[in-house]
Design a protein around this nucleic acid. Structure first.
Length: 580
RNA sequence: GGCGACGUAGCUCAGUGGUAGAGCAGGGGACUCAUAAGCCCUUGGUCACUAGUUCAAAUCUAGUCGUCGCCA
């Protein structure tokens, strides 16, 4: 019985390219997870999209003197290309500026309103009389009440880093007109989270498999008690509030962004002509599991707010797990786009292959604490581990077999105890590696596989078919056969982590059908709007391929060439020079 | 200021009461099928600090310091 696995991935703001910190935290882990489940023959639905409605986007647009839509289009396209380049196998990567997403969001809003979970409240906000509009926090500048910095933004002080409320700024001024804004009352809709405090406590009570930081953080918030939270804003960019008298207001970006998981699932089903198919993952009466891959800054929205919204809406599946990651630092310091202390995914892909970074960011994944990216460590991990331990093992046995056994998998004679032992060791890895991946312990899973690769190197050194070939061809053939099977198994075990190299080795081993399907960027036309999406066309659906090798003697190999390449030591200096 | 996570070999991490572990890096060696890769041997730690509980603490308790995050 195939399992239905919903892989929900954080929605990136379409106002800058993706950097490696985001890749490590929120985008690579779900792809490993999804590819593993695809190999299992499970039905994966992996969705995400660009968040197009944030204030950061209007800030970027105004700075550049273009429409917000143009900013969105540019970075959405950038995300699509990055995901193709890194091999992130989204079933659908869409964005929030679609008719479908607006419909689903409004349906959500209306139902929560009808059920009394969304309520009206009057709050105070800064209003610029010169511009005739309310000012979003980021559109106000003034003196920081904590450190006295005079150019603090309304949402956060760049000097001391503290989050601010624009109302607390001393001597506030409008970012556009420079005028001093006035405090005005404004009515907004609030999601009354307090009604969900107890239901959420009950729901989290049995989530003992969540990461400790995620669970403790969520329980702590519930202990403090959740408060109503505004879900509309006085801005013009976003989804209009569907209530008379509120035409000038928009739904606050965080509210519609989380709904994207649902709307993207619905869009995916429609795009493929099976409009109800999304229910297989979302109907709580049917068997399925949902996972939300995010960075730790998003935990609150995914373990509390989104579940509250789902409880309020009803008849939808709540998250099974939210494996939030900590942060990645770069050469010991925080990523900072303004100081150019960042590695942008498009830049990386313009110079290097995807597998090395996938490998590095998995072995150094910020799963339990912050971790660091360093170019010298990256180089070492690629050259010593990915290439040295694994790539070389695969290459040496493939070239040896190709040259000495007529390009075919040789016929083995009787297996020795050593032959059987390495085959057993390899076969026995499938279970524990699967368990690690299913528990979202990707770093541990990969380490376990690499331990098998090292064991296989030791086996091959002892078996030494290059020596046996001269005195006992049958023994050499057997050792080559055994090693090829081990390499075949390792190719599958490593496929979720380094899919490009595994795909190449899989073909070299003589298989005609690929391990994975293909990605495609597709234009989707709605009634009036058109958008680009990334989708995935699977292969061998429903077939379990997470199994030890059954490579058959006589299978024709393809001419081997290295699946992974060494990187020149000089790149460390070159890349460090690009930073800062 | 409150809460939480983390702090173990140069680096990345495992280890939750019983004589400190792995991978990578560093040093030495034998080999040569292979991307000068792989294999064997090896150096290296007062387990952040202090006090306590215990026959016994990296592991439990209290406190201190540091890093990160959330909240105020």
């Amino acid at each position: 019985m195939n399992e239905k696995i919903l892989v929900s991935v954080a929605w990136p703001y379409a106002n800058s390219p993706l950097h490696l910190g985001q890749v490590a935290g929120a985008y690579l882990p779900p792809d490993i997870f999804a590819r593993y489940h695809r190999l299992r023959g499970n039905d994966v639905l992996m969705v995400s999209g660009s968040d197009t409605h944030g204030t950061p986007i209007t800030v970027t647009a105004e700075r550049e003197g273009v429409e917000p839509g143009a900013v969105v289009e540019r970075f959405h396209r950038s995300f699509l290309d990055t995901f193709v380049g890194l091999g992130f196998s989204f079933d659908l990567f869409t964005h929030t500026d679609t008719e479908n997403h607006w419909e689903v969001t409004l349906r959500f809003f209306r139902r929560l309103l009808e059920r009394g979970y969304v309520t009206k409240q009057t709050m105070q906000a800064l209003y610029c009389e010169e511009c005739h509009r309310f000012l979003a926090d980021r559109y106000v500048e003034g003196t920081c009440p904590f450190c006295g910095y005079e150019d603090a933004r309304g949402d956060q002080c760049d000097k001391c880093g503290k989050p601010l409320d624009a109302l607390d700024l001393i001597k506030p001024r409008c970012k556009f007109s420079g005028d001093t804004p006035v405090v005005r009352d404004t009515e907004h809709f609030f999601l009354d989270l307090s009604q969900f405090n107890e239901p959420l406590k009950e729901w989290i009570a049995d989530k003992d498999y969540w990461r400790t930081s995620v669970r403790n953080f969520s329980l702590g918030m519930l202990e403090e008690g959740l408060r109503p939270r505004a879900i509309t804003r006085d801005i013009s960019w976003g989804i209009p509030v569907p209530v008379e008298g509120y035409e000038d207001k928009r739904i606050y970006v965080w509210f519609d962004a989380v709904i994207g998981y649902l709307s993207a699932s619905i869009e995916w089903a429609r795009n493929r002509g099976t409009p109800d198919a999304w229910l297989d993952w979302w109907d709580p009466q049917r068997p399925a599991r949902s996972y939300y891959f995010i960075g730790k800054d998003n935990t609150f929205f995914h373990t509390l707010i989104w579940p509250a919204m789902l409880l309020g809406y009803g008849d939808l599946r709540l998250p099974h797990d939210v494996p939030a990651n900590e942060y990645l630092t770069l050469e010991g310091k925080k990523f900072s786009s303004s100081r150019n202390w960042a590695i942008w995914a498009p830049d990386y892909l313009s110079r290097y292959d995807p597998d090395p970074i996938r490998y590095y960011l998995t072995t150094h994944a910020p799963e339990s604490s912050d971790s660091d990216f360093s170019w010298s460590e990256f180089l070492a991990a690629n050259n010593n581990e990915l290439v040295g331990t694994w790539g070389n093992l695969a290459h040496r046995i493939l070239t040896f077999a190709y040259r000495n056994f007529e390009g075919r998998v040789p016929q083995p004679a009787e297996l020795t105890a050593e032959d059987q032992a390495i085959l057993d060791t390899t076969a026995e890895a499938f279970g524990p590696v699967a368990a690690d991946i299913e528990a979202c312990r990707f770093r541990a899973a990969l380490a376990r596989v690499m331990a098998v690769a090292r064991e296989a190197n030791r086996y091959l050194d002892v078996a030494a078919p290059w020596k046996a070939l001269k005195v006992d061809r049958a023994r050499a053939a057997t050792a080559v056969f055994v090693t090829l099977r081990v390499v075949d198994s390792l190719t599958v075990l490593l496929a979720p982590f380094v899919p490009f190299g595994s795909e190449k080795l899989h073909a070299t081993l003589g298989y005609d059908e690929p391990l994975f399907g293909t990605q495609e960027i597709v234009p989707y036309q709605e009634a009036e709007r058109r958008h680009l999406g990334l989708t995935y066309h699977g292969v061998s659906q429903g077939v379990e391929r997470w199994v030890p090798s059954a490579l058959q003697p006589g299978q024709a190999l393809r001419e081997p060439s290295p699946a992974f390449k060494k990187l020149d030591d000089a790149i460390v200096e070159q890349e460090l020079a690009r930073l800062g």
